[in-house]
Computed example of a mutant assay.
Amino acid sequence: MIEGIGRDAEWSLPAAFYRDEERYARERKLIFEANWLLFSWSERLREPGDYVTGQLAGYSIFVIRGDDGKARAFHNVCRHRASELLREEAGRCGKLIVCPYHSWSFKRDGALHKAAEFGKDATFDPDEWGLYALDCEEWRGLVFVRIRREGPSLIEWLGPVVDFAAPFPIEKQHYFTKKERVVDVDWKTYGENYLECYHCRAMHPGLCATLDIDRYAIDVHPEHELFHLHAPGRAEGLTQGCYLYRFPFLMLNLYDWGSSIATVEPMGPGRLKHINWYFFEDVSPEKAEANQQSADWSAQIITEDLDIITGVQRNLNAGVYTRGALSKAQEHAVIAFDRMAVEALERPGPRRVAAE
């Protein structure tokens, strides 16, 4: 029993953990860089030369489809003077990636092609001076990237997600729309809210009308850092499916007819971008209105969450609230999530070598 709150509760994380710059820097290195992170979807990379740019764990990166059909990820930085190489959100480059600053060029596999007009006596090893590569793998039409180039394969990292998702036709579903919002909320504040339905009756009347909230459950798989959320639906409809949260912030809501797939891009302590993509098997014009209604229904639940936890984050920042009590019955998944966030910072960090 923890003194002051009884045997049925545990202490929350200290409020300072959600606003501390130094702690966030460690989270970036030891959590965001170390895990596979959702970046894009494969339909955006149909042909060799197709690319997608974006931010991941605070880095500017891009993924490009190679001549061999493989998707590769690189830091979006020229090896000459650190210019961003690709500045559009998505597109298709020619046979070469040409820096817009001084015209250095790189092949689609990242190797240096030419240091333009550098002098006839200058020699650069194409591989040694190639682009800074990242780990990149695809799974069922989704593109994942890992900043730190060590660790388990994507399939190993996904673990039980692979079997949970197996019955759902993800590859047959096509991108329909997205919803992105930047909010003053820490990534842990968001994750904790996602992993409990203690608030559902007060906050989500629409969700409660479709799910049997009395039977809502979250199964925790700590060895895989995975949460399986489930509840019977009151009727056939939008909420029949499989709901998964893979630490630190991969969210998969899978249905026979479509998927809501989400992640967050942490932008600093107490700030993030929430990213939600909606996929449907039928994206014909005839289904556009119904698909939009489905996406809007999902987005409304997220809006309800973001509205309340933005206020939570303000209070975590203010300094009055220091920590609270978590219910082992209602918030056991929050307790597990917090433990993962703490233990990840206690593991040995990446090793530095003399060449660095």
Rank of each mutant, 00 (worst) to 15 (best):
W11F: 08
R140M: 00
K107E: 11
I301P: 01
H230K: 13
R65Q: 05
Q240G: 05
F118T: 13
N317R: 10
W41R: 12
A336I: 11
F17E: 08
S327K: 07
L154M: 06
V98P: 01
A202L: 11
D125P: 11
P126H: 04
I301M: 12
A209E: 14
E265V: 06
L238Q: 12
F32E: 01
S12Q: 03
I275Q: 14
A71S: 06
A16N: 09
R148A: 14
L250T: 03
K29W: 04
A354P: 03
P248D: 05
T310Y: 05
P169C: 10
I335N: 05
F247K: 03
R352F: 11
N315W: 00
R28W: 04
F106C: 06
A355F: 13
F124Y: 13
G349Y: 04
K114A: 12
S153M: 06
D186I: 06
R108Q: 12
P266F: 10
A288E: 15
N276I: 15
L142W: 14
Q293F: 02
A231F: 08
A166E: 15
A262N: 15
E281Q: 11
D135S: 15
L254S: 10
L45F: 03
D125V: 08
P48Q: 02
R339L: 03
P269F: 04
E128N: 05
R347C: 03
C136E: 07
L306V: 07
L211E: 02
L244I: 13
A16E: 13
D338F: 00
W104I: 00
G58A: 02
F17H: 11
A111I: 00
H221R: 08
N291W: 02
Y194K: 04
A25Q: 12
A34R: 15
H230S: 14
A122E: 14
P350Y: 00
V334W: 02
A336W: 10
A71W: 01
P169L: 06
H221F: 15
I213C: 09
Y194P: 08
N317K: 10
V183R: 15
T322F: 09
R65A: 06
Q173L: 06
P266H: 09
P285L: 08
L195Y: 09
A133H: 01
A295E: 13
F106M: 01
E281K: 12
A325H: 04
V143F: 11
I2R: 13
W157Y: 13
T239P: 03
P169K: 10
A262G: 14
L134R: 07
M340I: 03
C99N: 04
Y190V: 08
A329C: 00
Y18V: 00
A262L: 14
V334N: 01
R87I: 12
R79M: 10
R146Q: 10
Y198N: 05
C78Q: 03
D282R: 07
Y243Q: 12
A318N: 12
E128R: 15
V320I: 14
